[in-house]
């Protein structure tokens, strides 16, 4: 299965309760279909699969935004190119849960259209059953990452359109 976003393809209309990109929707469904132990393993796989920070960000680390709500140093950068959103993360290996969440966002949102990212319902992590894995209290910290991504997307979009 592959999901390609092209600027000629308008944002598909989706049900209000289902504001996810197809890629993220598929990840959510994979988690929903899997037993707890499998979900842990999947989250770990996303943690391992998180792409490394490109050199242009690693060399200019202060251009990244620190997510203060995360207990460990966690940084995110957003680029918007031709209406497509690109995400970059720097998360330490000793925080695999947060890295895993970042890996899911990278796989589920990278390349998506601006509107699609802004429409992501922040409770998708709960729908995935992550709350049973990482305690509902900690889970809310993760939503701060998504909120900061959305804020950056808005900033970049306004910057681009003047």
């Amino acid at each position: 299965m592959q999901f390609v976003y092209q600027s000629s393809v308008p944002t598909r209309s989706r049900e209000p309760a289902d504001m996810l990109t197809p890629a993220l929707q598929e990840i959510v469904e994979d988690f929903q279909m899997s037993p707890r132990e499998m979900r842990l393993q999947m989250l770990l796989d996303y943690s391992r699969g998180l792409p490394a920070l490109p050199a242009r960000f690693a060399d200019a680390h202060d251009t990244l935004e620190r997510v203060e709500e995360c207990q460990t140093p966690f940084f995110v950068a957003v680029e918007v190119v031709d209406g497509h959103v690109h995400l970059f993360f720097d998360a330490p290996p000793e925080a695999p849960t947060t890295r895993g969440y970042a890996g899911i966002l990278a796989a589920g949102l990278d390349g998506a259209m601006v509107d699609e990212v802004l429409e992501i319902s922040p409770d998708f992590a709960l729908k995935m059953g992550l709350g049973e894995l990482v305690s509902p209290l900690r889970l809310r910290g993760m939503s701060a990452i998504l909120a900061r991504i959305k804020r950056q997307v808005v900033l970049h979009t306004h910057g681009a359109t003047g």
């Binding site: 393993q41 989250l43 770990l44 943690s47 000793e94 925080a95 695999p96 849960t97 894995l133």
Partner: peptide
């Protein structure tokens, strides 16, 4: 971090998840 054990643990150790 409930995934840290899975990234590597002391050989023979079991995991007890506080939550």
């Amino acid at each position: 971090d409930v995934l840290l054990y899975e990234t590597g643990h002391i050989p023979g150790a079991v995991k007890i998840d506080w939550h």
